[in-house]
Design a protein around this nucleic acid. Structure first.
Lengths: 246, 246
DNA sequence: CGTATCCTTGATTCGCTTCAACATTAGTGG
DNA sequence: CCACTAATGTTGAAGCGAATCAAGGATACG
């Protein structure tokens, strides 16, 4: 009992407890009461720092935990036998990494930090165990997993049906929207990834991505200075998303 | 107590109980003991028949249950505002449908039967509840959700990096493999979907799909008679999957 | 037997990739 | 601090693969 008190105060000292975390409402604790958050907190044993360009985990690593991003920016990608590479997503603070590993006890993709980052390590067997006690936590986990499935469907739509410029517009609006939710400017941000990584996500070559950026700039939809992006005409970008031909 | 006996015998009469189901090992009951399977069985209230071309659910429908396919064949697709359509998957017996609905209490895609089908209806709140009692069931659910995420990554790889013929080869090998697991011939099967639906899944136009079929037939990799497919050279098909250029 | 749906094949067009050259920025060591 | 180098980004020209447009053939169904 006083062990729990000690741990809570330790967490408080590090300012890393879920209860104090600004990302609480985006993350697993959403909707839990104070006591439940405290129990989740005790479970989140360690925070882990991951330096830029370093992997949080790699395909083939044994699956042990989910990771909640506290600060930073990641990409996930899959590599197949013949060297093909596909970026499956870019993840920012408050989002959960590692769900690919649950099905086979082994990670099937790589998670690479695109800037110096920090994650909360959530041992999965303990999370399942606590989920059996706390229905709301269990349901949150299910929602996080399902949300990822729905997001993936959106990426399939993008890759399967959209033109290059439509893909980039969708990408920019998505990034912008997610920054907004996190309290950052929706109009100005800097991309953490290279043109090649964007292309690899959007199913395009880096030259095509670069051309699309230039086109949008010519059309005064955005201004681009390397990775510094300013959205000048968000309605125009949304229009660029719409299918041109009938 | 005798209520459970009565229900078990009822289930036995209908030959639809999980315990008797040939798909047990592919489905949610995998790894559960007899008693646990019986409890899951009691939860699976109704079986539901879905006629060819009819929806099991539609985007926007309230989410209430997951569905385990007993017999039949489905496609799932998403439709966006400007009329674009993307088939996100084809599902066969033993696979689970409906996971897209968990995140928002509402389905985000359509599930359409491609032949007369039957599903087990698994009310989701009850499944969560039983999962809190039966750790193995809870874990199975998590694995099913994660497997879907990993599958989606494979589709992204396909859509993002592969050429038309590579996509079709991957598709055929995937279908073949899943039929094999279910005890059907890996070499001969008939497709339940049109060329257009295949194209819509693979991010190609139906003419391109048709041409790729013809090409494979010319190369003696497969024989095609409408939807009747015979794989003549599975190793050759796997080769067609490999990137041609360096 | 007639009609609608689905499929195949050919010719042409278009969008993205490929190849290439160069510009810019970031990082490193003298 | 600057020179040097590697990494990243931009832009142009040519080539190629899939889409589009079009016509005809096969199959299923009432």
């Amino acid at each position: 009992m006083d062990k729990s008190v000690r741990e809570t105060s330790l967490a408080g000292r590090l300012k890393t407890a879920c209860a104090q975390c600004s990302l609480r409402e985006l993350c697993l604790p959403v909707g839990l009461n104070q006591d439940e958050v405290a129990r989740l907190d005790r479970l989140v044993g360690a925070r882990r720092k991951v330096l830029r360009q370093q992997p949080l985990y790699r395909a083939g690593d044994p699956f042990e935990a989910l990771y909640a991003i506290r600060v930073g920016f990641f990409k996930t990608d899959v590599l197949n036998e013949d060297g093909r590479n596909q970026v499956t997503g870019f993840q920012m603070a408050g989002e959960i990494l590692g769900m690919d590993g649950i099905s086979s006890e082994m990670h099937s993709c790589n998670a690479i930090a695109l800037e110096d980052s920090e994650v909360c390590v959530i041992p999965f067997d303990q999370l399942e165990s606590l989920g059996r006690d706390i229905g709301a936590l269990q349901h949150n986990l299910h929602q996080v997993l399902s949300r990822e499935i729905v997001r993936d469907h959106g990426v399939m739509m993008l890759l399967g049906t959209m033109r290059a410029e439509e893909r980039l517009a969708a990408f920019l609006l998505n990034i912008s929207q997610r920054f907004t939710v996190r309290g950052f400017s929706h109009a100005e941000f800097h991309l953490r990834m290279t043109r090649e990584e964007i292309g690899c996500y959007l199913g395009l070559k880096l030259e095509t991505v670069s051309r699309a950026f230039s086109k949008f700039q010519d059309e005064k939809l955005i201004s681009v200075q390397q990775r510094r992006i300013r959205i000048l005409d968000s309605a125009g970008l949304k229009k660029a998303l719409e299918r041109r031909s009938g």
